[in-house]
Amino acid sequence: MTFKKAFAAAMVVATASVGASFAQAGDKLRIATEGAWAPFNFIDASGKPRGFDVDIANALCEKMQAECTIVTQDWDGLIPGLKVKKFDAIVASMSITEDRLKQVDFTDPYYTGGLRYVAAKGSKFDTSRAALKGKVIGAQRATVAGQYLEDNLDGVVDIKLYDNNDAVYLDLKAGRLDGALSDELPTYEWLKSDTAKGFEYKGPAFAKDDKIGIAVRKGDELRQRMNKALQEILADGTYDVINAQYFPFSIY
């Protein structure tokens, strides 16, 4: 039976290639981050994920005495990936929102952010709803900034949604966007760089009660362990040391 044999062979190879490793959930944790959200998480020239989120994740793992691997995953695949157990936690500067809480659980916040517009220096860019009318505004897809635009300014501004924040900056610089909406702190980092010459914050930061947490699967006891570890690094000063490496002010 030519077909049956060939088919059987195909199944063997296909199964082998899937490499179904039957992982046991123990003290080995896989933590996902995005890698395109400097200075919180980014990939350096040696290909390693680095940044505030990565340092916090490693500090927590040390307290929990867990062996952690940090993996990177495109932003819009993070929550779907967590749900299908591609990884155990997301430490990627993710805001705690009601929409997300329907999908995943969050730890206590580990820092607080806010939204802020950025546009070319000297450009007429007023952040009131009326003044924004007709402007082309960029933001990252599936972020608080992107959804703020969709929820509040749909039909008022021309919304462009990007796969990552680096792409937003590229298009801001290329002049395709009149302005961008993003989290205040990553923009703070970008504005310090050479490529950001000629750009500045526009208007004050808003939505400042933006609590950033670590996402875990619903009902996972990892949440309690992480909360406990978070309290520990806050108490023993580890957090402050990490904070100081990235920002001259406290972001907690």
């Binding site: 290639s17 899937v18 490499g19 039957f22 992982a23 046991q24």
Partner: peptide, 17 residues
């Protein structure tokens, strides 16, 4: 009932294959 993991590499090979 344990978790079965499919790495990005395996998923990529499966899809492209």
């Amino acid at each position: 009932d344990e978790y079965i993991e499919i790495s990005p590499f395996a998923a990529g090979v499966t899809a492209l294959g």
